[in-house]
């Protein structure tokens, strides 16, 4: 059984005097032990809201959450706040895009790390300090004993993200959720952090839910990839399958529109037209229809179902998926 199994997760923001806004609209995916699963999509597609819902960090007023998220046999979405809090930091941990805002600026790194060790692992005094230094060393922070005394602003962006990872893995969580953990970093630092995350997954068997808008990052680290569009997964497959045969018109178009470092110069990009604002509600049809080259009237008759038109386990939510031309079509 999957370590985390998310089924039809939906999150709707309700505010007085405003139309309800559905940020996550029926997202389903699984994360297995030791697996790296990617949630990839553009700004506003619901990546962060999904992760906050799983962590129980959404505000409790003005939000409607639906669906199930079974982690280790228990539904996170219906768990008591107290139980969820115990779960967070021990079995479930999260790292965020902006390490500075996730660290307390007036408390030395060391105190922030030892606090977690004291609360969740019952370590005290010198033992906690030793373990904290070990953790910083583990995530590649040089001179850990000195760094423990420093404040977040004294560390560089990359060091802060390492410190945050150290705090997240302090209790050997079974699942680590990383929301754009490298987006704020330079690419040479990003490479260091990704390498560190890979290493943690390999050595500790931690499962990683990797949230990013960068398909390059996904290609390098994820075993399984879920492409989100307007709050729904539109395609999911193993990483090799997905990148070799992007089958949903959105995923297909996205890969064709990214300038690749290894593409010869002068090769034109094929952009997707319009923007994420041009969409229809999933309830009425395919949200991508206004931007899609392949759309037909069928696309406007309710949410397309997930099917496996190309390969088993390769799920696509589209009525006219991008498939290799059949012989009949080619000869016609």
């Amino acid at each position: 059984m999957a370590l985390l199994s998310v089924e039809e997760l939906s999150v709707t923001f309700t505010a007085k005097g405003r139309k309800d806004a559905t940020a996550v609209d029926g997202v389903s995916f699984d994360v297995d032990q030791g697996q790296v699963v990617g949630l990839v999509g553009e700004s506003g597609c619901g990546k962060s809201v999904t992760s906050l819902a799983l962590m129980g960090l959404l505000p409790n007023k003005g939000v409607k959450i639906g669906g199930r998220a079974v982690f280790d046999g228990q539904d996170l979405l219906s768990m008591s706040p107290r139980k969820l809090r115990d779960m967070r930091g021990s079995k479930l941990a999260m790292i965020f895009q902006d390490p500075l805002s996730s660290l307390n600026p007036v408390v030395p790194i060391g105190v922030q790390v030892t606090e977690i060790l004291e609360r969740h692992r019952g370590l005290k005094g010198e033992a906690a300090r030793k373990e904290a230094a070990h953790l910083l060393d583990r995530v590649g922070i040089p001179d850990p004993s000195r760094r423990l005394k420093e404040y977040p602003h004294q560390l560089s962006g990359g060091m802060r993200q390492r410190a945050l990872i150290a705090m997240a893995v302090a209790c050997a969580p079974r699942l680590l959720i990383a929301d754009e953990p490298t987006t704020a970093l330079d690419v040479t630092i990003q490479a260091q952090i990704l390498e560190l995350l890979k290493e943690l997954v390999d050595q500790e068997g931690t499962a990683l839910l990797m949230i990013t808008h960068d398909l390059g990052v996904v290609a390098g680290i994820c075993d399984q990839v879920n492409v989100l569009y307007a709050g729904r997964a539109v395609e999911s497959a193993g990483r090799r399958e997905l990148f070799a045969h992007p089958t949903h018109p959105y995923a297909h178009g996205l890969l064709g529109s990214i300038p690749r470092l290894d593409a010869p110069r002068g090769e034109p990009l094929s952009p997707i037209r319009g923007s994420i604002n041009d969409r229809i509600a999933w309830a009425d049809g395919c949200a991508f229809a206004p931007r899609c080259d392949r759309y037909t009237m069928e696309c406007l008759t309710g949410t397309p179902e997930l099917t496996e038109p190309r390969a088993a386990g390769h799920q696509v939510r589209c009525v006219n998926p991008v498939l290799p031309k059949s012989k009949a079509e080619v000869s016609a």
Binding site: F13, T14, A15, R18, S43, G44, S48, V49, L52, L57, L58, G62, R85, R88, G89, A93, M94, I95, F96, Q97, D98, S101, S102, L103, N104, P105, V106, V107, Q112, E115, I116, R119, L164, M167, A168, D179
Partner: peptide, 20 residues
Amino acid sequence: DPSESGADADAPEPDASAKK
């Protein structure tokens, strides 16, 4: 403000969120 999105939704790890 419920219309605030993305950035603000990125709530920090609760174990160290005094600043937030």
